[in-house]
Amino acid sequence: MMKCDEVYLHICDSLDEDLGSPQCRAIKKHIERCPECRTYLSSLKTTIALYCAVPVPRLPAQAHKDLFTTISALTASAAQACRQPRKSQKKNPTRDRT
């Protein structure tokens, strides 16, 4: 039978992806019989649920506007660079020799 110390160290695994593993099954078995560990697991779940329930602000309009100003400048300069390689080759004919 697993002890509380071990359960404490691995209890998170029983919230995660390895639910079917022998270790998780042993944790589950322990938790069914141990009210303290059951309380601990329940409080961990509530902690996570609380953080999931905290509302997060949506993107502010000004941040959206600033972002698209930056993106427009980036895409415009990339488009310009695509149109200009011949000019720069004339100015610097040695550039592509390496």
């Binding site: 998170c12 303290e36 059951r38 329940s42 409080s43 961990l44 902690t47 609380l50």
Partner: peptide, 27 residues
């Protein structure tokens, strides 16, 4: 990753103890 997650959860749970401590339910 698992180790950081375990510590982060344990720390947050402890900080929120008065809010998240619920009596154990007997299955």
């Amino acid at each position: 990753t698992k180790s950081r997650l375990r510590r982060a959860r344990a720390f947050l749970r402890e900080q929120l103890d008065p809010y998240v401590h619920t009596p154990a339910r007997i299955a």
